[in-house]
Design a binder for these strands. Sequence first.
DNA 1: AAGTATCACAACCGCCCAGAT
DNA 2: CATCTGGGCGGTTGTGATACT
Length: 318
Amino acid sequence: MGRAPCCDKANVKKGPWSPEEDSKLKSYIEQHGTGGNWIALPQKIGLKRCGKSCRLRWLNYLRPNLKHGGFSEEEDNIICSLYVTIGSRWSVIAAQLPGRTDNDIKNYWNTKLKKKLLGKHRTNNNKEHHQQPRSRKQASTTNNTSVTGDFSSSSSSSATATYWSHMHMPMLPLPPPPPPLPPLPYAEDNNSNNEGPSFNDQDSLRKLLIKLGGRFSNNNFSEDYQPPPLDDGVIMNFHQFPSYEEEQIHCHHNIGSSSGCMNNNYPQRLDGLEFFYGEEMAVTNDEKIIETGGASNNNNTTLIYPPLHEDFSYRTPQ
DNA sequence: AAGTATCACAACCGCCCAGAT
DNA sequence: CATCTGGGCGGTTGTGATACT
């Protein structure tokens, strides 16, 4: 049989944490640690909380050296860079931003960065939508939504502004390089100059994805696949991502399964941001079409991947 | 000053995976 | 091998704060 139940759902407190609860939890963990068992923790402390709730409270709020709010432009850059690279893997992104939690970054993205992107897009699109109609969903919003941002006049040239200022270019240029960060915990490489992740550090990103396992280091990836050469300073060609319609065609299996169609999450699509991935794109020779499935998967799934820059390819580790 | 809309973020929900039984 | 839970994660919701009318 399995383990004992997690907690008595009927007798656990929900809602905001009181200072007393915070104090109890923090002091206990600082003295004794979690003991590797969050479920048993609240009982030891005398808290009427679910273990999961204690874990979240500790990780997102009580943990030492946490930063809240006040995201810098460099952090914006990193978040945007990683988001367009690996999607909404907030925990992975948070791991690259010391003192930040996945919840913080997720909230920041949802409340600010995403709106920045939408605002900039709509600004551009309002000027150009007669010339360059985009996806159906976007086209429907273009005529009915107001401009919520103005990056053309913004003095803070964040990564988002950088992206949007080039959104009609065939290739995405590099954003300004982020500042140095502590070395990646998984890095056993030559990253000795303590440089954090960036579009300049594709090898680290590749290793990061490999480290993530299954969802990114799929053995089905071709061992000898080599992305096409790209110009200096060019990282990704977002216009080579499949369109929404193509994704429906190629990714109609395993919807909702994190281990299924990776295209659902890599990079993650956002409602209202279809323009981000380009439109009316055909599968080009540069794209990697991967047939998955086999003994454990009767439904073959076709995955389409954009070409990646240099050694940031889909090769499995040596 | 009051009512309403929007923002920001803490917390919860539900799912997945790995591991225990 | 099947069942079940803990840990972890991403998505969503609830709510207080703030801005706006």
